[in-house]
Amino acid sequence: KCFLYCNGLMDHLYVCQNGSGCAAWYKAPTRFTGTLDAFVKITRYEGVRSLWSGLPPTLVMAVPATVIYFTTYDQLRDYLHARTGSQGHHIPLLAGALARLGAVTVISPLELIRTKMQSRQLSYRELGVCIQSAVAQDGWLSLWRGWGPTVLRDVPFSALYWFNYELVREWLCGQTRLNEATFMISFASGAISGTVAAVLTLPFDVVKTQRQIELGDSEVHPVAASKPSSTWLLMRRIRAESGTRGLFAGFLPRVIKVAPACAIMISTYEFGKTFFQKLNQERRLRGL
């Protein structure tokens, strides 16, 4: 049996082979009537700490991925502004898409490795053998398995997110008559833009989740695993089985997860960037 869960920053795959190893992680009750019900029951039966389960390995992946992503976006945005001489809102749209594309491409093999380690509970030596075998059998591109659905979800999300973020931040600064965004303006802009982007890209998130579950099942039953279908065929299958609503499954949990995550990340990033810019400026003035 394969389970997919998210701790707020990253998806995690947990595989129970032959029904073993699940008791400590997957406890009764197994049915939730909603997001709030899930919070209450998980806290009651597994403790508050279980809501942050898997955080350390997540941070190992999330921190470098976020550093690459945010830094690349800032550099690309400034470069495109200088190169084109334009301050148009299409610049954040393009920079956001390219930055996420680069970050996903760099992190994708590490994501696959992490998924294999979670699903098979491999040691590092066994993992090396597994990767060598996969490369020998399917080539180096096999390390980027699942790259397509991830790009289809994350790149449009990033483009929409940065487009809306810059737009909302500019509007809020205008409303408050401020030249620079405050922490709360960045926080609100991040939450609003994250919500809009999350809703519009939800079908691709559903497909990516389905792909991850298929990957986990293939690790447990490699012989019985079928060849993965394309993203569009998978979307058609979900729509045929569950209707259009099936493509928007998990709407509320995704918004609850993404909106505060985007708000916290961008506001702390902007705060840190402003803080260190002022610190460097003060040091330069002292040196004069």
Results as ranks from 00 to 15, higher is better:
70 F>Q: 06
67 V>D: 03
136 A>F: 09
75 Q>T: 14
62 A>H: 08
59 L>R: 09
73 Y>A: 01
154 D>V: 09
100 R>H: 11
149 P>D: 05
111 E>L: 12
62 A>F: 15
70 F>H: 04
140 W>C: 12
40 V>Y: 14
82 A>I: 01
56 P>K: 05
105 T>L: 13
121 Q>K: 15
146 G>S: 07
52 W>N: 08
161 Y>Q: 08
46 E>K: 12
72 T>W: 05
120 R>E: 14
132 Q>K: 15
106 V>A: 08
49 R>M: 13
132 Q>H: 13
160 L>C: 10
139 G>E: 07
91 I>C: 03
73 Y>M: 05
152 L>K: 01
142 S>D: 11
150 T>E: 05
113 I>A: 13
54 G>Y: 07
42 I>D: 08
128 G>N: 07
146 G>Y: 05
119 S>I: 03
116 K>G: 14
78 D>M: 02
59 L>Y: 10
155 V>H: 03
105 T>Q: 07
108 S>M: 11
85 G>V: 00
110 L>R: 01
78 D>V: 01
120 R>T: 06
89 H>F: 15
158 S>N: 06
99 A>K: 03
93 L>N: 06
107 I>Y: 00
132 Q>N: 15
79 Y>S: 07
117 M>E: 04
116 K>M: 09
86 S>Y: 03
110 L>P: 02
78 D>I: 04
82 A>T: 00
104 V>L: 10
100 R>C: 15
142 S>V: 12
75 Q>V: 15
44 R>Y: 07
62 A>I: 11
76 L>F: 10
146 G>Q: 06
